[in-house]
C-alpha cells in the first residue's frame, strides 16, 4: 500500500498530486432521513481544511462517511486517489487514516498505556507508539498507569491526539477538538495541529465554533443543512460566517 505517501505521478506531462481525501457528490441518510445532500469536498495533500457549520449541519456524518463508519448512499469517496467506498473503518485505519472522534476519543476503562496499545493495529510496535506519544505529551508518561477515564478533559484529548499521531497517519480527521475544553487548552491543541500540518500530514478539522480553527486552516468550507454553502480562504469565510450561521448560535472565540 502506498497510500501513506502523498505524492502520486499520473502521466508524463506534469506531476499532479492527488488530493488526500476527496468526496464527490456524497449523500448519506439515517434510516429514511437524508442528512447529506451531495457533498463535494477536497482535502489536498499536506493542507489543513476546516469544515464549519452550525449544529446538525451534517459535519460529523461527513466525517463518518469519509472514515468508513457510515455508508454513503450515493457518490464516491477517494483517499489518495483510490476509491474506497464500502471499505470498513478498521481497514482505512490500518492504511493511514485517523479520525479523532467528537468528545473524547479514549477508552475510559483502560489505562493510558493500554489505550496506546490498542493503536498497534496500524503496524507500529507498542514501544514505538509509547515513545512517540510520551515524547509529544510528557504528561501522558506520568499518567501511564492511570485509567483514561480519570484524566482531565485536556489530557484525554491529548491521549486521543497521541493515538492519531503515533501511527504516522497520512490523513488526520479531527471532530470538534475544542468540545468542552478550556480556551487555553484549545489554543495549545491547535498549536499542535499547526505543527503536525507542518510535518506534511493532511488534516480535516470540523468545528462548530469557528474562529480558532480558521487560524490554522489553509482553506475552509461552511456546511448548512447537508450542503456545502461557502468555500474559500479563511479570511473570506470569517467575513461571511455570521451570515451563514443564520442565528444558529454565537460564534465567539
Amino acid at each position: 500500500m502506498t497510500t501513506t505517501g502523498p505524492a502520486r505521478t499520473t502521466g508524463a506531462v506534469a506531476p499532479v498530486v492527488a488530493p488526500m481525501l476527496e468526496l464527490r457528490g456524497v449523500r448519506a441518510a439515517y434510516d429514511s432521513i437524508d442528512v447529506l445532500h451531495g457533498i463535494d469536498l477536497v482535502v489536498p495533500a499536506g493542507q489543513v481544511i476546516a469544515l464549519l457549520g452550525p449544529n446538525g449541519a451534517g459535519k460529523t456524518t461527513t466525517l463518518k462517511v469519509a472514515s468508513g463508519l457510515h455508508p454513503a448512499a450515493a457518490g464516491d469517496v477517494f483517499i489518495a486517489g483510490r476509491r474506497v467506498n464500502g471499505a470498513r473503518a478498521d481497514e482505512l485505519a490500518c492504511r493511514g487514516l485517523c479520525l479523532v472522534p467528537e468528545g473524547r476519543g479514549v477508552f475510559p476503562n483502560l489505562t493510558v498505556r493500554e489505550n496506546l496499545w490498542v493503536m498497534t493495529y496500524a503496524g507500529r510496535s507498542r514501544s514505538e507508539i509509547e515513545e512517540a506519544a510520551y515524547a509529544r505529551f510528557p504528561v501522558l508518561a506520568e499518567r501511564r498507569h492511570q485509567h483514561a477515564g480519570t484524566l482531565s478533559g485536556g489530557e484525554q484529548q491529548m491521549l486521543a491526539m497521541a493515538r492519531g499521531l503515533a501511527t504516522d497517519p497520512a490523513l488526520l480527521i479531527l471532530d470538534e477538538l475544542s468540545m468542552g475544553l478550556a480556551p487555553l487548552v484549545v489554543e495549545q491543541l491547535y498549536g499542535l495541529v499547526a505543527d503536525v500540518a507542518a510535518e506534511g500530514v493532511s488534516i480535516l478539522v470540523v468545528e462548530q465554533f469557528a474562529r480558532v480553527v480558521l487560524g490554522v486552516a489553509s482553506r475552509a468550507a461552511v456546511m448548512v443543512a447537508g450542503h456545502i454553502v461557502h468555500e474559500g480562504l479563511p479570511a473570506e469565510i470569517e467575513a461571511t460566517l455570521s451570515e451563514s450561521y443564520l442565528g444558529a448560535g454565537e460564534t465567539e472565540h
Binding site: V17, P19, G38, R219
Partner: peptide, 10 residues
C-alpha cells in the same frame, strides 16, 4: 481537483 468545490447538484 485540488480545491474545495461547491456543494449541490452539479
Amino acid at each position: 481537483a485540488a480545491t474545495i468545490r461547491r456543494g449541490g447538484a452539479s
